[in-house]
């Protein structure tokens, strides 16, 4: 940290006060809840914790949660790459509208996301009678859970890839094509290797949401124990039965998933920053667009029109 002139920096006492205040806020709102998940889970000792996790219903909830994530992620990866390819590499009318529509699921309440599928496939829904006549179950079954999860995780991967692919420009792909590569060769050997970290970043975020989704899944799942209960729904059921240790034991598994997510996310951010730095060192400064920021919350689809 370089020394700053007193008119350019706050007095030490102000710095210490502000830092303390910020850290206290974070400790109260983030630190304590995180600690308390594990404290509650182990409140009755380690054996009780392990017993709660070994419960067959907890296991089937874990398995269902993993199945849902495995079903959702590949579909959203294909969509994310396709949408980002079109938006980042081509000019067309209505691009801004398309980006807004892709973001739409972020703005929609998870409860509404679940409800729309009930209105289509539920007993009183548009296709309800037909599905019932053919004995096909979508609502209160796995397909409904997958659909609702697809909806709420819809934008994650596309949103990470769009700014990244815009920043990378078209030159490398154009070179591959003009050297005679086919479209698929270009995709596998140029595009995907270039976006692998951004793709991984999007997958990490989408996975956390897919495994942790509660509102949308709770509307479509029907809470059938051992069948359509994902892990977050299992947490709710145990909590409502005043089974504090069981609820928090299951919650601790999800909290560990959250910690792994944060760790993986930080590691990938670090990799991406390093690659951007290496890229800037290779190219002359004016050709390097603003690095695609790894931050998600405010990802602003940074301006990437090249000069």
């Amino acid at each position: 940290m370089k020394p700053r002139h007193s008119a350019l920096a706050e007095p030490p006492i102000v710095r210490i006060a502000l830092t303390t205040l910020a850290l206290l806020f974070l400790a109260f709102f983030l630190g304590l809840p995180l600690l308390s998940v594990f404290a509650e889970a182990f409140a009755a000792g380690v054996p009780a914790y392990l017993r709660a996790l070994a419960d067959p219903e907890a296991r089937s909830a874990v398995i269902l949660t993993v199945i849902v994530a495995l079903g959702v992620l590949p579909l959203n990866i294909v969509f994310g790459v396709a949408a980002a390819w079109v938006i980042a590499k081509f000019e067309f009318r209505g691009k801004a509208a398309l980006i807004t529509l892709i973001d739409l699921p972020f703005a929609v309440s998870p409860v509404v996301a679940g409800l729309v599928f009930v209105l289509i496939f539920g007993a009183q829904g548009l296709f309800g009678p037909w599905l019932m006549a053919h004995d096909i179950k979508i609502i209160f079954a796995l397909p409904g859970i997958v659909l609702a999860t697809l909806f709420v995780t819809f934008p994650f991967i596309a949103r990470e890839l769009i700014p990244l692919m815009q920043a990378q420009g078209r030159e490398e792909e154009e070179a591959a094509i003009s050297l005679g590569a086919s479209g698929w060769q270009m995709l596998w050997r140029v595009t995907l290797p270039n976006i692998k970290w951004g793709l991984l970043y999007g997958v990490i975020l989408a996975n956390a949401r897919a495994m942790g989704e509660f509102g949308a899944v709770s509307v479509v799942s029907g809470h059938i124990r051992g069948e359509t209960n994902t892990l977050p729904l299992h947490v709710e059921i145990l909590y409502n039965e005043y089974n504090q240790v069981g609820a928090f034991a299951a919650a601790s598994v999800l909290a560990m998933l959250a910690l792994v997510t944060l760790l993986a996310k930080t590691a990938v951010e670090w990799r991406m920053r390093r690659e951007t730095a290496m890229l800037s060192a290779e190219l002359s400064p004016e050709r390097v667009p603003a690095p695609a920021s790894g931050r998600t919350a405010g990802a602003t689809h940074p301006s990437a029109e090249r000069p």
């Binding site: 509660f214 928090f248 959250a258």
Partner: peptide, 17 residues
């Protein structure tokens, strides 16, 4: 890194905690 916890922690876990 911890600032992103609310994005990563499932809402049901946040709720009961």
């Amino acid at each position: 890194a911890l600032v992103d916890l609310p994005f990563a922690l499932p809402t049901a876990v946040a709720g009961i905690t």
